[in-house]
């Protein structure tokens, strides 16, 4: 178990290192010169001033040196200062991270409950109208882009019915919940089709196994068969897929944050890229990658708890 854990951790760090270089290089290679922006615009630009700004921000050094410097600083938890705001990047991120995490958590609860629920429903009534309704409905929901869904939700629940506020994040637990319902829903809609279908298929596969027929032949109540033999055995793929979708959402809140005027990590990233704010863009991207890798690693670590055979293999390996 310890060896397995160490191997996971090493893989985790290697992934992060590779990702950090790609992120740094990509932002570096992006068109536009941040020095121009830092010097205060094109009109009062002189070559001397440009050179001075470059030297001040170490922009005149080769890519690898800059990367090394940035990585070293990151390891000391110093993400640098924003070119645009002049604030510490870490402060900028922490002030906005909570909102994005709340949004993702809320959306995750929604797509897990609704998606898995719909999948179980469809699996239990395969080839009936319920099954077709679930598959058709979730496919429709997934084929609508999230910004269109956001606008539709706003016009229906926000404007027509007036049930939910359409912008801002609110305060307190219920206030936040109230404000984030529509954004979370529009974020979760796209995941519903995937999760419900993975659930349906995993349940169908589990239901086809011999031990389910054996349980049925022993007269075990159908409800217990579904719970202990079908759903329990289908959990592996369901948990994996939920984890992957949730991890993907950490980096996918941009559109919804923009549509609902929420100042989270996503809108911070878009702003930073538009203004060549290198340190902020790099830090946010690194954070998103870290989040993704952490979630997927956690999912992998949970897997042995769901399937004792995996645990056994890990022990003997």
């Amino acid at each position: 178990m310890a060896a397995r854990f160490a191997r996971r951790l090493a893989g985790f760090l290697a992934t992060l290192l590779a990702a950090s270089f790609v992120i740094f290089a990509a932002v570096y290679a992006a068109p536009g010169d941040p020095a121009v922006f830092l010097a205060g615009g094109r009109d009062k630009l002189t070559p001397e001033r440009l050179a001075a700004v470059r030297a001040q921000y170490h922009l005149d050094e080769p890519l690898v040196v800059q990367y090394g410097r940035w990585l070293g600083d990151c390891l000391h938890l110093d993400l640098g200062r924003s070119f645009k705001y002049g604030d510490q990047v870490a402060d900028l991120i922490t002030s906005r991270l909570a909102t994005t995490l709340e949004l993702v958590a809320y959306a995750t609860v929604l797509f897990v409950v609704l998606g898995v629920g719909a999948g179980i429903l469809a699996a239990g009534r395969q080839s009936t109208w319920v099954d077709s309704a679930v598959v058709g409905g979730t496919t429709l929901a997934a084929s609508v882009p999230s910004f269109v869904a956001a606008i539709a939700l706003v016009s229906l629940f926000g404007v027509q019915l007036g049930w939910f506020p359409v912008t801002g994040t609110g305060s307190g637990f219920t206030g936040t919940l109230h404000h984030l319902t529509l954004p979370a829903l529009s974020l979760a809609l796209g995941a519903l089709a995937l999760i419900s279908r993975v659930t349906r298929q995993a349940m169908a596969d589990a239901a086809a196994s011999d031990h389910v027929e054996a349980a049925r032949a022993s007269g075990i109540p159908e409800r217990e068969i579904i719970r202990h033999h079908v759903f329990r055995n289908a959990l592996g793929p369901i948990v994996t897929m939920c984890g992957l979708v949730m991890a993907g959402m950490l980096a996918g809140t941009v559109v919804v944050e923009t549509a609902f005027g929420i100042s989270g990590i996503g809108s911070l990233l878009v702003g930073a890229i538009n203004t060549h704010d290198f340190p902020v863009a790099q830090a946010v991207l690194l954070l998103m990658v870290t989040g993704y890798v952490v979630v997927t690693t956690l999912v992998d670590l949970v897997h042995p708890l769901l399937d004792p055979r995996v645990r056994e293999e890990a022990r003997t390996a």
Partner: peptide, 22 residues
């Protein structure tokens, strides 16, 4: 269900397949 649970019992061919692995 009650008939299967009380009167008749089956011993399956492949015990490893007939038991839920988890």
């Amino acid at each position: 269900r009650r008939h299967r649970a009380s009167t008749v019992a089956m011993i399956h061919q492949d015990p490893r397949a007939a038991l839920n692995p988890v």
